[in-house]
Design a protein around this nucleic acid. Structure first.
Lengths: 214, 214
DNA sequence: AGGCGCATCAGCCGATCGGTTGACGGCATG
DNA sequence: CATGCCGTCAACCGATCGGCTGATGCGCCT
């Protein structure tokens, strides 16, 4: 790939507004060429096969064809395209799966325009680009390839979690277990980290999926 | 039972402090007689068989022998004793199970002393006594015998709930679904009512148990 | 002896949640 | 056509949560 050849793009997002915004942004900048758009993962895989873009800008969380699955399919299919994940809002729980699935970069849509351009150029060259928030998450999560993070919860943590699943507030949990509210919060913070979630609702969901509850 | 015969009591609670408190309270008042105490459901069933108390004051949520199971066993065994449930803090999800299991009354420990006395007298006569909070829950839950309230969630509500289970905040859910945060909250309030829970964590738990999620 | 995980606690903060009340249009059912 | 459910939205409020920093004591393993 020479310096003057434009980087070709495929934009994947379920929000038409976002697609337009990205298209406009890249068409207005030199060195980029938007080949097409797709509204979901399935469509993205199809179009990528035909168009062979350099970089795919992909949203996660789309109706009808999740982003992570699409990435996995693309990389497994040996596609040349680099996938740059662009998440709508903040760093959610799909970060690691997306990267494990083969995403080359991961950043937030509210990143400055120039960061976006740089990220796409970097991705086109195969360099990994991560938004700071994501990067910090990754370093704190240096773990084996594809390991679904399975740290065991302590007995006390499981006890707290079980009460959380019953709708018990931290204060109530404290009274139930004869400990202070501060301790309850500590247990919660720890088990959030172990489960890889960020609030009690997600903790309960993950616990059910792993058979810790129910 | 004549007017001057004291009402005999069995106190069941895992907290020694609470047991002492109740014992002291009833021993100081005329017309009551505390026969014994138990620290869990199993012990309660055993002692009730031997002592034949008029009223059993029972906490729910105890380690080693849940209160509801004990109540069920007592009533199924044809015990004469009336069970008055005394919950530590507030109206939790065990309210209905406890009453269905055969509890004669249900009130909160922070009820005024006289309410407690009256409740025990009422229970001894077989009258049902409920704390206001519990009563209002019941009227809004005129369920058939043993029916675990199975109101179906609307499609939108299920959609919101699924995102909640992923740890998504209300604001993020709003963006995902192209609706306002106010609407998200409305959906949540509705689905809490339908599931009979009071926060998102319990909603997720209930949803898993009913197969709505996972 | 030193390190490590677990459990306990404090205080502060901003962000978020849940409750409440009230409202509007659409659509179906009766 | 009246009633009810669904979906949408607003504004306000107190309660709760989650993050952060930092600290102590205990038991276990090396």
């Amino acid at each position: 790939m020479t310096d003057d050849a434009p980087i070709t793009l495929l934009i994947v997002d379920d929000h038409p507004v976002v697609r337009d915004g990205l298209r406009g942004m890249f068409e207005a900048a030199p060195g980029f060429r938007v080949l097409d758009e797709a509204a979901n993962g399935v469509e993205a895989v199809e179009k990528a096969a035909g168009l062979d873009p350099d970089v795919i800008l992909m949203d996660l969380r789309m109706p009808g064809g999740g982003g992570v699955a699409a990435i996995r399919e693309l990389t497994r299919g040996g596609a040349r395209a680099k996938v740059l994940v662009l998440t709508t809002y903040d760093t959610d729980s799909d970060t690691l799966p997306a990267i494990e699935a083969g995403a080359t970069g991961y950043l937030l849509k509210d990143a400055p325009r120039d960061d976006l351009f740089n990220a796409v150029r970097a991705a086109a060259e195969g360099r990994t680009v991560l938004s700071p928030a994501v990067a910090s998450r990754l370093v704190s999560a240096v773990r084996g390839p594809g390991a679904p993070r399975n740290e065991p919860l302590s007995a006390r943590e499981r006890e707290v979690l079980a009460l959380v699943a019953k709708g018990t507030s931290n204060r109530e949990i404290a009274r139930e277990l004869f400990i202070s509210e501060a301790t309850v919060k500590t247990h919660l913070t720890h088990l959030y980290a172990k489960l890889g979630v960020k609030d009690r609702a997600a903790a309960v969901a993950t616990a059910y999926q792993r058979g810790i509850l129910g």
